[in-house]
Computed example of a mutant assay.
Amino acid sequence: MTISPLTHNARPEGELPPQEAAAFDLLEKLGIEYDRVSSDPADTMEKCAEVSKVLGVPICKNLFLCNRQKTQFYLLAMGPDKPFRTKDLSAQIGSSRLSFAPEESLWELLHCTPGSATVLGLMNDTQHAVRLLMEREVYEAEYLSCHPCLCTSSLKLRTRDVLEKLLPYTGHDVSVVDL
């Protein structure tokens, strides 16, 4: 896997896909600093582990979930090595029968492709149809890492900036969960 050197507050060169350009524009607008690496698509946790070594922080496992009726959607940010048990999460959020949401919903609500679900995609959820869930260790960590709506770049962000700048801007709250 090819991974670029770490850069600070520098978007990838050249023309970017619209969803990725929008993510970098938002970070700049909100004054959120970031470290970035570019790579071949890091669309699995195994590939993300290689990128994490360069970033110096684990990339969050971001799961895009929905209820059985596909009327409630959730973005779960959790540690890369945490196991995901539907039963444990369902009980905490009061939603039974969680499953992975359809790819079409991921694109429609967050403008992200499979393998690229990210907290930055919440900028596209203007109807607030997605509820953000953060596993406690991710919520309490100094940094979190995610993709800018496309999995060919990975970012290291201060968690405090996500909680205090990004989420107020998008109008989303976070629910902390224990997994």
Rank of each mutant, 00 (worst) to 15 (best):
residue 33 E to P: 02
residue 169 Y to A: 13
residue 94 G to M: 06
residue 108 E to F: 09
residue 99 S to M: 11
residue 53 K to P: 00
residue 127 Q to F: 03
residue 46 E to W: 06
residue 118 T to Y: 09
residue 139 Y to G: 03
residue 30 L to C: 03
residue 98 L to C: 06
residue 65 L to Y: 10
residue 178 D to L: 06
residue 102 P to G: 01
residue 8 H to G: 01
residue 63 L to K: 01
residue 9 N to I: 02
residue 148 P to H: 09
residue 145 S to L: 05
residue 174 V to K: 13
residue 82 K to S: 12
residue 84 F to D: 15
residue 38 S to A: 14
residue 104 E to Y: 03
residue 178 D to A: 12
residue 153 S to K: 02
residue 145 S to H: 02
residue 4 S to R: 03
residue 130 V to L: 06
residue 177 V to M: 13
residue 54 V to T: 15
residue 64 F to W: 03
residue 125 D to C: 13
residue 29 K to W: 04
residue 106 L to G: 03
residue 88 D to E: 11
residue 87 K to P: 00
residue 53 K to W: 02
residue 104 E to D: 08
residue 21 A to I: 02
residue 154 S to R: 05
residue 160 R to G: 01
residue 25 D to V: 01
residue 8 H to W: 08
residue 167 L to E: 03
residue 101 A to Y: 09
residue 170 T to P: 07
residue 94 G to Y: 10
residue 73 F to P: 04
residue 18 P to N: 09
residue 100 F to E: 04
residue 28 E to Q: 15
residue 167 L to F: 02
residue 116 S to Y: 00
residue 45 M to R: 09
residue 53 K to M: 14
residue 56 G to N: 14
residue 165 K to L: 13
residue 164 E to F: 00
residue 148 P to V: 01
residue 4 S to L: 01
residue 37 V to P: 11
residue 96 S to E: 15
residue 168 P to T: 15
residue 66 C to H: 02
residue 85 R to S: 06
residue 80 P to L: 02
residue 115 G to I: 11
residue 10 A to D: 07
residue 150 L to C: 03
residue 56 G to R: 14
residue 155 L to H: 10
residue 174 V to S: 06
residue 170 T to C: 08
residue 37 V to K: 08
residue 104 E to Q: 09
residue 90 S to Q: 14
residue 27 L to H: 02
residue 163 L to C: 04
residue 48 C to R: 11
residue 9 N to R: 06
residue 150 L to S: 09
residue 26 L to T: 03
residue 134 M to I: 05
residue 169 Y to K: 03
residue 173 D to W: 04
residue 102 P to N: 10
residue 53 K to C: 11
residue 144 L to Y: 01
residue 163 L to D: 07
residue 80 P to F: 04
residue 90 S to C: 14
residue 92 Q to N: 09
residue 116 S to R: 02
residue 40 D to A: 14
residue 22 A to H: 05
residue 130 V to S: 07
residue 130 V to I: 11
residue 42 A to S: 14
residue 151 C to V: 03
residue 86 T to K: 12
residue 79 G to F: 01
residue 162 V to H: 00
residue 35 D to H: 14
residue 33 E to A: 15
residue 31 G to L: 04
residue 152 T to P: 00
residue 140 E to K: 08
residue 179 L to A: 13
residue 35 D to I: 00
residue 16 L to T: 04
residue 43 D to K: 07
residue 158 R to V: 00
residue 135 E to L: 09
residue 114 P to G: 06
residue 149 C to Q: 12
residue 51 V to I: 09
